[in-house]
């Protein structure tokens, strides 16, 4: 068992920053290749005409999820040392609801807006400017609703805790759901599809 490498001190903080940059390059490159540098392509998701977002996201999730489970099972990776997003249910759901609105109005999410800006999309620049402004506003008003930001805190809860099923079973269900969604996505594109 030697992964995650950083947590087992195979390299230090500064090497980690170099790795961060390289991982970022791979991440940004892939997002651009997926077509996520186009706001219209991203937004057509919400009109059932181009389901690329759903296909890319769920493929990525099931690949990484399955990889983690196998590496854990093979005793290569210590799952308890992998960062798990803490669950703080109410701000996450409210934030998600707000972001859905921002997504369909703005046409990007934060990561994709950076990639769009990198290749010269002017709506990308405006979106990034808006996002920075929105974050500044959030920080300014944060003291007024600080209590909300910790409400529904459930620590390191996972889907398998919630469903009371083993992680492998949950992963299997997630894969089934993803395959079902891919099938529906293909049907929708056949019917409403448009090349953006």
């Amino acid at each position: 068992m030697s992964a995650p490498f950083y947590k087992f001190d195979l390299f230090g903080y500064e090497t980690g920053l170099v790795i961060a940059f390289l991982i970022g390059v791979a991440f940004g490159f892939t997002l651009e290749r997926a077509g996520f540098s186009s706001s219209r392509k991203l937004a057509l998701q919400f009109y059932l005409r181009d389901m690329t977002v759903l296909k890319v996201m769920f493929t990525a999730i099931i690949v990484a999820m399955t990889g983690l489970l196998y590496l854990n099972l093979a005793d290569v990776l210590d799952m308890s040392k992998i960062y798990l997003n803490p669950t703080v249910l109410y701000p996450q759901m409210l934030g998600g609801a707000i972001m859905g609105v921002g997504f369909v109005i703005g046409g990007y999410c934060p990561g994709t807006s950076l990639v769009a800006s990198a290749i010269g999309k002017i709506d990308g620049f405006f979106y990034v400017g808006g996002a920075l402004l929105g974050m500044l506003i959030y920080g300014e008003v944060f003291p007024f609703f600080q209590d909300l930001t910790t409400s529904g805190a459930m620590g390191n809860a996972t889907l398998s805790d919630w469903l009371n099923l083993r992680p492998g079973v949950v992963a299997f269900l997630v894969i089934l759901m993803a395959l079902g969604l891919f099938y529906v996505a293909e049907m929708l594109e056949k019917r409403f599809g448009e090349k953006a």
Partner: peptide, 29 residues
């Protein structure tokens, strides 16, 4: 839209990358 998203992303403790993708793969509730 960017401003709305920026605000929401801080409230939600992350965006499509940090929450949906990363938290999705680790099955975070």
């Amino acid at each position: 839209g960017g401003a709305i998203m920026g605000f929401g992303a801080r409230l939600a403790l992350g965006c499509t990358s940090g929450q949906a993708l990363t938290g999705g793969a680790t099955l975070a509730l």
